[in-house]
Amino acid sequence: MADAKDSTSATDTTVKRRVALKVLATTLGAGAFAKAIAPIQQFTASTNAQEWLQKHYRELSSRELREVLARLEAETKQKYGREVTIEDVRPQAGVQFAYALNLSVCIGCRRCVEACHQENNHDRASHNSYIRVLEMEQGSMDMERGRADYDHPVRDEGKFYLPVQCQQCENPPCTKVCPVEATWKEPDGIVVVDYNWCIGCRYCEAACPYHARRFNWRKPEVPAHEINPKQSYLSNRIRPQGVVEKCTFCLHKTRKGELPACLEACPTGARVFGNVLDPNSSIRWVLENKRVYVLKEELGTRPRFFYFFDK
């Protein structure tokens, strides 16, 4: 407080008293602040140093990745009480995924929504799912006239149903905006999120024109016996709180040659999935022989998710 005396005419004792008062006030203020932000401890307890220091997925060496997967498996056991396996399933050479959906036969039963909910270990309380089905008016493609909250026996007269999930765009607006490259497009066309790298700014959620992304507004809760134990790092492992997630075409299944959960659940066979690079695949046949269209083509996102009608 050397300079205090240059501008005040106070005596030394007043200065000392003021210093004491200021120290007291500062201490009180600091104490109150510590008390105010005490709930942070609950947050810090939910994470740890290894997780905090973890590198970006694409920078992890094989050994580091193995350690991360083992740690995540142990954490799932500890937090959710379930033995799970978390794999790193890589894209296959010569495979480019695409999806097509037949709007003539979709009846809007939401079985795909349920299958997604279970397969991908979604939070039970919010009943989250990557798929949203719009009930549309026959004779209109205007989503303005659709609604997602229908709750009556389906299919209803004069209606058709439009399930919407991640379109795995060729030109994804969501990956472009991410400030930390926590989301990117993989070589097989699937847009993924590194849940351990995402900072939760939700810019991607604002950028997506298809309502495909979801944010973990709280820690996801799934009862141990309902957890799907076959998990992968980039897809259906239980997500941390405060990060963004999205449909990955069930890459933990599809990269092993299996069909995605939503397709297997579809009772009408409205869904067609496969490798567009294979000229004999069902998806190729649909793309070549049906009149397909994509959602919001005018935005130039070039989706890999196609819709078609039989008649």
Partner: peptide
């Protein structure tokens, strides 16, 4: 016709 799974929350 049958009842669909519940709507989103």
């Amino acid at each position: 016709q049958f009842s669909p799974a519940p709507p989103p929350r």
